[in-house]
Amino acid sequence: MLFAGQGSQHKGMGAEVFARYPGLVAFASDLLGYDLAALCTENPDGLLSRTEYTQPAIFVVNALHGFEHTHREDRRADCYLGHSLGEYNALLAAGVFDFETGLRLVAKRGELMAAASDGGMAAVLGSSEEHVLKVLADHGVDGVDIAGLNTPSQLVIAATPPVLAAALDCLEEAGIRATRLRVSAPFHSRYMEPARVRFAEFLTGFTFAEPATPVVSNVTARPHRAPETARLLAEQLVAPVRWTDCVRSLLDPDDPLEFTEIGGTALTRMVHTITSGG
């Protein structure tokens, strides 16, 4: 089972499940200090696009859809995998922490990431990590981090504003397609180190169980283990999302991969690209 992350939010999200889980929705609203259902279905003042609101909203909606799917299908997945923020839903589904703990973690994570600034990100299409880094090096552009490896031909870069602008200019000159992402900071890069330090301190107040079902870490592309969970969740803020490696770790030539995505369709498209060798 795959869980989508930030970017999957949209006005109206969760409307179909909120009424079936009124207790959890009310609990989440009380914990967060605002009406979560109204935020998701009405998006007042465009708040749903702000990271500190986006992340708790996605976490709750993903969780409810995950509960719904498990109850409807009457079976659990063999493995859980989430993209960035979605990894928290994967850990929740695997019993590493409960709903309240997950929501507290995500609310703090969103707060710290929203406080970060002075940078941006861009999606780079049709080129490998090695080629992109070589082009940047050849043009003398320094300070760009690979923030995500979504497919063999789709990656994400992050940097400060002037460095990102220079990187986009030289990629365009080299004939490489790149598009700025609508984010407020260079997530999953060295520039999130202050947030990582603060989040690591926050995580010391929590205890994490061993996953009842394997959860593949975005940082290592290997299954989570309880002693490492806190460190990996903090590290995730500064490390690239190794989505391609995560998916490849689940592939077996003798057993075709079957999966369900919770929260969108973007991950499904990525998985099809990875499994087809594209």
Rank of each mutant, 00 (worst) to 15 (best):
E201W: 11
E201V: 13
F202K: 01
F202C: 07
F202D: 06
L203K: 09
L203M: 08
T204F: 01
T204P: 02
G205C: 11
G205N: 14
F206Y: 15
T207F: 07
T207S: 14
F208Y: 13
F208P: 00
E210M: 01
P211Y: 00
P211F: 00
P211L: 04
P211C: 05
T213G: 08
P214A: 12
P214Y: 13
P214V: 07
V215N: 01
V215C: 09
V215D: 01
V216K: 10
V216R: 02
V216A: 05
V216M: 14
S217F: 03
N218C: 13
N218V: 02
V219Q: 05
V219G: 12
V219N: 08
T220L: 11
T220S: 14
T220A: 06
T220Y: 05
T220N: 10
T220Q: 04
T220D: 04
A221T: 04
A221M: 10
A221I: 03
R222E: 15
P223N: 02
P223R: 00
P223G: 10
H224S: 03
H224Q: 12
H224V: 02
R225Y: 04
R225C: 10
A226Q: 07
A226E: 11
P227Q: 08
E228K: 15
E228W: 14
E228I: 03
A230V: 01
A230M: 12
A230D: 00
A230N: 08
A230R: 04
R231Q: 14
R231K: 13
R231H: 12
L232Q: 07
L232D: 01
L232Y: 08
L232H: 01
L232T: 04
L232P: 00
L233E: 08
L233I: 13
A234W: 00
A234F: 09
E235V: 05
E235K: 07
